[in-house]
C-alpha cells in the first residue's frame, strides 16, 4: 500500500474505538430462505407486483407469451411512440432464445451507440418484484453502460427470473457468482429522473427517459 502508516494508524484507532465500548448488538446475519418453488398463484402475484411497482416508477411493461414474440412486441412499442424501428441489442439477448429473424421491419443495428437517441434492448439477470426493478450484470457479452446511454431502454424479463425480494436475489447470486461478483450489477427501476429542476421530477436526466419491460412467459 502507498501509505501504510495511514492505514495502520486508522486501523489502530478503529480497533481501540471498537474495543472501548463493546456493545455488540448481537445482530446476526439476516437469514433468508428464498422459496424457489413458487406456487402458480404466487407466481402471478409476483409478476403483478413487479409490474405494478415498476409502473409506479414510470416504467411501462407488457406480457409476451414467448421469446419469439419479443421482436413483434418491440416493433409495436416503437411504432406506438413513433420512434425509428431500429435498436441496438446488447448482451445475451442477441444469442439467447430470441429469433431475431422474425423481426421483419425491426432493424438490429450493428454499430457503436450514438451519444444520444438510440433505443437499446437488453436482457436481464433478474427482476425484483419487491421494487419493480430489473437487475443486469456486466460481462464479456454485455457492456453495461449501453443501458445508461440509451434514450429508450427495452428490457426482456423472463418470468422465471423474477424474485420476490432482495434476499431471493442474493441467494441465487451467491450460488451463480460463487467464483466472484460481476464488475457491475445494476438495479434499475423506471427511467432516469431528477428532482433538481422543480416538482414534479423530470424524466431522462442522464439515463433513458423511457424504460419498457417485456415480461416473457408465465
Amino acid at each position: 500500500m502507498m501509505n501504510k502508516t495511514a492505514r495502520d494508524e486508522i486501523m489502530a484507532l478503529v480497533r481501540s474505538g471498537t474495543a472501548a465500548q463493546v456493545v455488540d448488538s448481537g445482530a446476526e446475519m439476516v437469514s433468508f430462505d428464498a422459496d424457489e418453488k413458487l406456487r402458480e398463484d404466487d407466481r402471478k402475484t409476483l409478476i403483478a407486483d413487479f409490474r405494478r411497482y415498476a409502473a409506479q416508477e414510470a416504467a411501462t411493461s407488457e406480457r409476451v407469451a414467448g421469446a419469439n414474440d419479443v421482436p413483434q412486441a418491440i416493433t409495436r412499442y416503437l411504432r406506438q411512440l413513433e420512434l425509428p424501428l431500429q435498436v441496438l441489442a446488447a448482451g445475451e439477448i442477441i444469442s439467447g432464445g430470441v429469433d431475431w429473424g422474425l423481426a421483419d421491419e425491426l432493424e438490429i443495428l450493428n454499430r457503436p451507440i450514438r451519444p444520444d437517441g438510440d433505443t437499446v434492448v437488453t436482457g436481464c439477470y433478474a427482476g425484483l418484484a419487491e421494487a419493480g426493478a430489473i437487475v443486469t450484470v456486466s460481462s464479456a457479452h454485455f457492456a453495461n453502460e449501453l443501458q445508461f446511454l440509451a434514450a429508450t431502454h427495452i428490457v426482456v424479463v423472463p418470468v422465471e427470473r423474477i424474485f420476490a425480494d432482495y434476499e431471493g436475489l442474493w441467494s441465487v447470486v451467491s450460488r451463480e457468482f460463487a467464483a466472484g461478483m460481476p464488475r457491475s450489477m445494476n438495479w434499475i427501476v423506471g427511467p432516469s429522473r431528477t428532482a433538481d429542476l422543480g416538482v414534479p421530477s423530470k424524466l431522462g436526466a442522464h439515463g433513458p427517459a423511457r424504460v419498457h419491460l417485456l415480461v416473457v412467459g408465465g
Binding site: 425484483l128 419493480g132 466472484g180 427501476v189
Partner: peptide, 10 residues
C-alpha cells in the same frame, strides 16, 4: 421503495 439506480460495483 427504491431509488432508480442502485449499483453494486466490484
Amino acid at each position: 421503495r427504491l431509488s432508480n439506480y442502485t449499483t453494486f460495483v466490484h
